[in-house]
Design a protein around this nucleic acid. Structure first.
Length: 355
DNA sequence: AATGAACCCAACCGCAATACC
DNA sequence: TGGTATTGCGGTTGGGTTCAT
């Protein structure tokens, strides 16, 4: 007895299967579809193929149009900025490809999904970062060597501050990724802020069963051999959201700030700037961060979307720029050494956890 | 040159949400 | 208000291409 499929259980097929073509589209079919839609629009996908003289089901026509033939589709390689945007957005939205695509003009959800699965996911894995959680992968971390390092254990070290900030971002992203956590995070964040206890304990924010890096005990850094591939030690590895991890202690505050991402600037409100006040450029970047924070809390039309905020807020600053400046062959970029991605995301969420 | 593996991506499948009657 | 149609979306597949041996 054959197994019941979804159709035999009462589901109506999207179209008559009989005699309809499947598989790759021919140029002639494409032209028919384009011509019809240019003339009549695409009101009803079910009736469209018949009216357009196509032996396809409406669903196939819709997919072909939205993923390939639409005139506003941007073809070709993803730019490095787009790649960073995808990682940033994925760290917050997860596999919500359509939501991510909505913030990358000209790119389709299908294209972004494919690019994620074939390129970005593998890069993150090579860097020792879990592409699902965007946290360092515990299975590749050499915890003992990290824990044994007096450098990391020095409470005054810059990288200690850095690692703690990464921990904040990790927690922030985790909070975003779980809507149930949003209010919890918000309350905890406010409480801790009011208490001037700027570094929030990991256990306060995440359910105990959730695997996560214990940032207060050890820094959230991937092992050197994993994450340093392709990234020159002389450069500053920037980070987008919690997706990037630096291997090298920052030499000044701009580096420090670059490494730790300013996109979630509210989060930085919970960070004790006095910890890095001794760093060069501190005042400048602190001021800038506060400006960004204002924009986030009162987003202007210019800054309320990713599209508009792709432009760096401080293009003349001392942020490290893309490794060799040409940025043409992204496949050769095995690390994320670039301007970190500066954009605000308040419109991404229905709930602003910070208000 | 042959061939098998790995990669890439357009297209498909099926579920869920929404619209419509 | 319930049933059906339509649309949107994320996961998966499969065939073409490239790479490695």
């Amino acid at each position: 007895m054959p197994a019941l499929n979804s159709y035999s259980m009462g589901r109506t097929p999207c179209c008559e299967k009989e005699g309809l073509k499947k598989g790759p589209w021919t140029p002639e079919e494409d032209q028919k579809l384009i011509d019809y839609i240019q003339k009549h629009g695409y009101g009803n996908w079910r009736t469209l193929p018949k009216n357009a003289g196509l032996q396809r089901c409406g669903k196939s026509c819709r997919l072909r149009w939205t993923n390939y033939l639409r005139p506003d589709i941007k073809r070709g390689r993803f730019s490095f900025e787009e790649e960073e945007a995808i990682i940033q957005l994925h760290s917050i939205l997860g596999n919500k490809w359509s939501a991510i695509a909505a913030r990358l003009p000209g790119r389709t959800d299908n294209e972004i999904k494919n690019y994620w699965n074939t390129h970005i996911r593998k890069k993150l894995l090579r860097m020792g970062i879990d592409p699902v959680t965007h946290n360092p992968r515990l299975d590749v971390l050499d915890l003992s060597s990290i824990l044994g390092s007096s450098f990391y254990n020095n409470p005054n070290s810059q990288i200690n501050s850095f690692s703690r900030l990464i921990g904040i971002h990790n927690r922030l992203a985790n909070s975003f990724m779980s809507s149930n956590n949003i209010s919890h995070f918000s309350m905890q964040n406010v409480e801790n802020h009011e208490q001037s206890n700027m570094i929030i304990s990991q256990s306060q924010l995440l359910p105990p069963q959730q695997p996560h890096y214990q940032i207060d005990q050890s820094p959230a850094l991937p092992p050197l051999h994993e994450a340093s591939a392709g990234c020159s030690p002389s450069t500053t590895t920037s980070c987008g959201g919690e997706a990037y991890y630096s291997l090298f202690p920052p030499s000044n505050f701009s580096d420090f700030y670059s490494q730790n991402c300013q996109q979630q600037t509210e989060e930085l409100n919970g960070f004790d700037y006095s910890e890095c006040a001794q760093l060069p450029n501190y005042d400048f970047y602190k001021q800038e961060q506060e400006q960004v924070h204002q924009q986030v809390m009162e987003p202007s039309p210019e800054t309320s979307t990713l599209n508009s905020s792709l432009t760096p807020l401080n293009s003349n600053s001392t942020y490290f720029s893309t490794a060799n400046g040409n940025g043409t062959d992204q496949d050769e970029k095995e690390s994320y050494c670039s301007d970190f991605f500066k954009f605000e995301i308040p419109d991404l969420l229905d709930v602003n956890p910070f208000v």
